[in-house]
Design a protein around this nucleic acid. Structure first.
Lengths: 140, 140
DNA sequence: TTAATTGCAAACTCTTTGCAGATAA
DNA sequence: TTATCTGCAAAGAGTTTGCAATTAA
């Protein structure tokens, strides 16, 4: 059994088709999605699935540390499977969101714990700017 | 005239009492606030000020680059005067949000532009964890 | 004088909740 | 069998918008 399902079960929750479908959707699309996007994809597997269940399930998953929700400045939440050590690059030109794994992220954590006594559990990092394609095209 | 008002005027916008009040509120409280918090403080200076105006003004300011809005995982936006080079440390124990100016932030920008050809304009960085006080108290 | 701005209220969007029926264990 | 979970619909919270009146320039 894949690790997320295992965690769910171990925490005493039922493995319903809806929960399996939501996990599959999150897995199949590596990148973050809005609740609506997730729900649309879930309905292809579970046509009767309700939006409220998607909200409830994502919140349950977040509580278990299976997913994180991120903010892209829009008016709604985005969720993705939790993976450590990735930053988002949001292009102000084309709107694309890509990922970035900086080689120095460990140094930041070290600096944090040293200077501030702050123990890092998780982080959300979003850089806004222009991707190489948009830089080539335009005059940014 | 302070620089934010100057920018507003230069961009062709009127300097209304409401806009001045919102700027003053943002300046007086260094840290981020929710729209509601901002509006409550604005009403002390402009009792008749409407909430919609606060929303419109903050969005106008954001468009001009005067403020940035950040996300703390709650269901509403937070705004603050735009200042470069600061990261948020969100304590999962006491909920306090403090700031952090990492000495290596320039290196990240350099790595970004080198490896990815991505030109950084702005960023939001939030680290979640436990502050020194909570670490002393608890067993985290 | 006049185009920009405002307050109000209504509309809209996203999210949460209550509840009766359905279902995994 | 039974406590958990679901779908539905209604409620709630935050945000945006239309419009007539007001106001900065």
């Amino acid at each position: 059994m894949k690790s997320e399902l295992k965690k769910l079960k171990e925490a005493g929750f039922k493995l319903t088709p809806q929960r399996r479908a939501i996990l599959e959707v999150l897995r199949s699309s590596g990148i973050h999605m809005s609740v609506d996007e997730i729900h649309e994809k879930v309905k292809k597997k579970c046509p009767q699935a309700g939006l409220a269940t998607t909200y409830r399930t994502l919140d349950l998953f977040r509580g278990l540390g299976l997913v994180t929700n991120i903010n892209l400045g829009e008016g709604h939440k985005h969720y993705e499977l939790r993976r450590k050590n990735h930053y988002h690059l949001v292009c102000l030109g084309c709107g694309n969101v890509t990922e970035f794994r900086p080689s120095i992220s460990n140094e930041i954590e070290r600096e944090l714990s040293g200077d501030c006594g702050f123990k890092v559990i998780d982080y959300h990092v979003e850089f806004y700017g222009y991707c190489s394609k948009c830089l080539e095209k335009g005059e940014n």
